[in-house]
């Protein structure tokens, strides 16, 4: 349970970090909060040759609400975003989901962007970003690009990030006024990885249901106003389409059942506010 040897670098600017990534490519890993990466280093699931510590880079420590977009820098911790005074008004789904991310103690260092880059299938923040059609801002020495959440997270713990690129920020669209949101999670204990995590929002009479912890990447279902058997059928098709598998924590059947039952409850909850 000790990391293999690596060089450590704490650049003073984002450009210096990008230089290191360009120089070392796959051998370099960005270290921000380290709440997933250091655990992986300890278990030797990751063995980078150089760690690039961006946690103290001031330009990456900003939270900004501008033009209907909430932009969160790569060194902003989950705790900092959760306690940001404007959060519940700007994006209530984030405010509901963040308390489910790890534990109070891991949120003190764990970053929002780091969770997105780690891309765990059961993680809450990738689910919220996908649900809201958010995006990530990537930089390398070659330039800058913005990827939609659906294009960024490509598989289980896999993203479209190139070896010389780093996430510098993520962007959550601000919530429309008067929207209703819901977030639920089922795990063995609070703070554990989600067996199933669900998000629901209502907009323009339509409801979106997002699910994490079942498929390799978060999935969403857009529903017209439905009730009764038609809603059950839509949720059942969605649940089966996620390709759930059995693991030590839960069976595929249990996961489908959670999607159907909690999904229905949450769809009805957010839809009621939008008759």
């Amino acid at each position: 349970m000790k990391p293999a040897p690596f060089d450590y670098a704490r650049p003073d600017t984002v450009d210096e970090a990008l230089d290191l990534l360009a120089e070392h490519g796959d051998g370099a890993r960005i270290l921000a909060g380290g709440q997933s990466l250091v655990a992986m280093l300890n278990m030797r699931l990751a063995s980078p040759t150089v760690l690039v510590d961006i946690s103290r880079l001031a330009p990456l420590r900003t939270i900004a609400l501008d033009g209907g977009v909430l932009e969160v820098g790569a060194a902003v911790t989950q705790h900092e975003l959760l306690t940001w005074p404007g959060l519940a008004a700007a994006q209530p789904l984030l405010a509901l989901a963040l308390p489910w991310v790890g534990h109070h103690q891991t949120r003190q260092r764990g970053t929002v962007c780091g969770s997105l880059a780690h891309a765990d299938p059961s993680a809450e923040l990738p689910l919220v970003l996908r649900h809201l059609d958010g995006s990530v801002v990537l930089r390398s020495r070659r330039g800058r690009r913005v990827l939609a959440a659906a294009d960024f997270q490509t598989g289980m713990m896999t993203t479209a990030l190139a070896a010389d690129e780093m996430v510098v920020a993520c962007r959550f669209p601000a919530a429309p006024a008067g929207g209703r949101v819901a977030f639920r999670e089922v795990g063995q204990r609070h703070g554990d990885f989600a067996i199933v995590a669900l998000a629901a929002t209502a907009r323009d009479g339509k409801v979106r249901l997002g699910v994490g912890g079942v498929a390799a990447v978060p999935a969403t279902l857009d529903l017209p106003p439905l009730a009764g058997d038609a809603l059950d059928d839509a949720l059942n098709d969605f649940a089966w389409g996620l390709g759930a598998g059995d693991d030590i924590h839960a069976t595929a059947r249990y996961r489908r059942e959670l999607v159907r039952r909690l999904g229905r409850r949450m769809v009805e909850e957010v839809a009621r506010a939008h008759p």
Partner: peptide, 13 residues
């Protein structure tokens, strides 16, 4: 001032 895990931090941090 923040309560954090010492096992998830490098000493250099």
């Amino acid at each position: 001032g923040r309560a954090v895990r010492a096992c998830l931090m490098l000493a250099v941090q």
